[in-house]
């Protein structure tokens, strides 16, 4: 595999319950500044794989390198400044304001007994502005819609200023505008700061053009990887999803994917 990979996983294996591995032998490499997508059918282990890469779970076998170092050897606070993770769903119990939630993203940069400085608050507000939800800053997160809540999570991860962002279906409950807006934001950040992105998604039509690499996960292992144009084709996708109704078509330079009803 390439030597300049920021994230490199080899032969990962993980199971929640003994004897039923969710991830078995998954390998992937993502170079710095790349936009990667992780696709695959429901239950194939996408969320688990991304949690392993974020070190929220520990693989039982295999190893993960981050920036050339074993992921497990990196100090947790140091890692928190480098990897941002956006969970698929976040349940909100307490009515923290959106700004308070986004400010938690600054905590890896602040020592334990400090409060956020004005500069941190500015960064949090800029993150809210970047994802287009400045108007929600003082709203309790318990009152936000699913999509708005997801944007708050993304803003929180952006306020964290990581060099690598791992997102688990960030666009799942977003409307058309914010879905494209989110991808646009990630592209902007990539070209401005060299951000590396790995995103779990079911939105196959958002990948080509733009994404550099697509990993197709099937039954806990990376079955196919390649350029979006290579992975997003009838034969690969029909096989991946075991669905012969899947169609792909290139229109105006974009690849569209749908399943015939």
């Amino acid at each position: 595999m390439s030597g300049d990979a920021l994230v490199e996983a080899r032969g990962l294996r993980f199971s929640y319950a003994a004897g039923r591995p969710v991830i078995c032998g998954a390998s992937l490499a993502l170079r710095a500044g790349a936009m990667g997508a992780l696709i695959g059918p429901n239950g194939c282990g996408k969320s688990t794989l991304i949690r392993l890469l974020a070190r929220l779970l520990t693989p039982s076998l295999g190893d993960i390198q981050f920036g050339g170092m074993p992921l497990s050897s990196i100090n947790q606070r140091v890692l928190a400044k480098q990897i941002g993770y956006v969970p698929q769903t976040t349940s909100r119990t307490f009515p923290f304001t959106a700004l308070e939630v986004v400010l938690t993203g600054r905590s890896p940069h602040i020592s334990r007994f400090q409060f956020e400085s004005n500069r941190d608050v500015e960064k949090a507000r800029a993150a809210l502005e970047t994802v287009g939800i400045s108007h929600l800053a003082q709203r309790p997160v318990t009152e936000l819609s699913g999509g708005e809540g997801q944007l708050v999570s993304v803003a929180r991860a952006l306020a964290q200023e990581p060099i690598c962002l791992l997102l688990d279906e960030p666009s799942a409950s977003l409307d058309l505008k914010h879905r494209a807006g989110l991808i646009r934001t990630l592209f902007e950040l990539r070209s401005r700061t060299g951000l590396t992105v790995l995103m779990v998604t079911h939105d196959l039509s958002l990948l080509d053009p733009g994404f550099d690499i697509v990993f197709a996960l099937n039954r806990g292992t990376v079955a196919t990887r390649g350029l979006p144009s290579e992975v997003l084709c009838d034969s690969v996708l029909r096989d991946l999803y075991s669905d012969r109704h899947i169609r792909t078509r290139r229109v105006e330079g974009r690849t569209f994917v749908w399943s015939e009803v």
Binding site: Y85, P87, F94, T104, S107, R112, R156
Partner: peptide
């Protein structure tokens, strides 16, 4: 002394873990 950690845990546990 654990106020800050509790703040992050109160928002979301998984996110708290990813924030160190």
């Amino acid at each position: 002394a654990l106020s800050r950690d509790l703040q992050l845990l109160a928002v979301d546990q998984e996110t708290a873990a990813s924030l160190g």
